[in-house]
């Protein structure tokens, strides 16, 4: 099969995909001049060094003893030899590390999948379906993001109490099941990436509304959805305030950030252990990045055509 023309891609897969395809074709035609030169890589290397340095700083402190930390405000760039010892002390301390890890995985996975599903559903509806009140409702969704989160602690706690969820994981999951950001994000994406022709074709074939969504919209949404899922996963992985409020700092029943904060529950600060905790908490996310990185980030460009 020969490569489809750009306009026909636009017809079937939306403008984003068409642009991407145009870019690809450009590269094919005049790739040599488009390959960025050393300056670009230099800039990126500097950016990357800045991005990674604080994490490396945590790593340096996590791998030395706390006496070293007190002595040298600027840690030497060579890591010490106590990393595993400090990481083990985090894992074996009384904070309930493993159950906190499992709880965090549950909370982040459920919320990420749910955010993606509900946001795509709502985004599809806002972008592609016709119904009364569509415009005002979408503006309303955006306006809800302006509500300060600190504002809701007492009333939200009352809600969770009514639902008998205090101290339980669903109390952390429930408020995060779908976000205004997600709805808006998917609306904007599907608006451009999902051609009406595909929807119409499915409808003419006799597919129900939901079936149309499931087999047409959802696959088309995948590139933006993976990224949204990643953001939601990380946001919930790092959330500290609300889990602390509803779950409490109970070893075995809380999430990872709250558990790690318990490492500071001493009169004195053991920075090397605390930083080892930081490092341990970031490690699973870094592994996820490495394993799923390509899927997650390059999806935006490639996915739309497949849909």
């Amino acid at each position: 099969m020969s490569a489809p023309s750009i306009p026909s891609i636009e017809q079937f897969a939306g403008r984003g995909a068409a642009r991407a395809a145009a870019r690809r074709q450009n590269h094919r035609g005049s790739g040599a001049e488009r390959r960025p030169r050393w300056l670009t890589y230099t800039i990126l290397t500097i950016v990357l060094l800045i991005a990674i340095y604080p994490l490396y700083y945590a790593f340096l402190i996590a791998s030395s003893t706390k006496e070293d930390v007190a002595r040298h405000p600027i840690p030497s760039l060579v890591p010490g030899s106590h990393l595993f010892e400090n990481m083990l002390s985090v894992i074996n301390s009384d904070i309930g590390f493993w159950s906190a890890l499992v709880n965090s995985i549950i909370v982040s996975t459920v919320t990420a999948v749910s955010v993606v599903l509900f946001s795509t559903l709502a985004g599809y509806s806002f972008a592609k379906l016709r119904f009364r009140g569509r415009g005002p409702l979408l503006v309303f969704v955006i306006a809800t993001t302006a509500i300060p989160t600190q504002l809701g602690v007492v009333p939200l706690f009352l809600v969770m109490k009514q639902l008998h969820l205090i101290g339980k994981l669903p109390a952390v999951i429930l408020p995060a099941l779908v976000t205004a950001f997600g709805v808006f994000w998917m609306t904007q994406y599907l608006e451009g990436a999902l051609p009406y022709e595909l929807i119409e074709a499915a409808r003419v074939d006799g597919a129900s509304m939901f079936r149309t969504f499931w087999s047409i919209a959802l696959p088309a949404a995948r590139p933006a959805a993976t990224m949204l899922g990643l953001f939601a996963f990380v946001a919930n992985w790092t959330n500290y305030f609300w889990p602390l409020v509803v779950l409490g700092a109970v070893p075995g029943r809380t999430t990872l950030p709250v558990a790690l904060k318990m490492l500071q529950a001493h009169y004195y600060a053991d920075y090397s252990q605390v930083m080892a905790g930081v490092f341990v908490s970031v490690l699973p996310l870094l592994v996820m990045f490495i394993l799923a990185g390509r899927q997650l980030v390059s999806g935006i460009m490639q996915g739309a055509v497949k849909g």
């Binding site: 009384d94 602390l244 409490g248 700092a249 109970v250 070893p251 904060k261 318990m262 490492l263 500071q264 529950a265």
Partner: peptide, 11 residues
């Protein structure tokens, strides 16, 4: 007995 051990007195 279940221990609920907040890190800081603040919490």
């Amino acid at each position: 007995i279940v221990s609920d051990k907040a890190a800081k007195s603040d919490d």
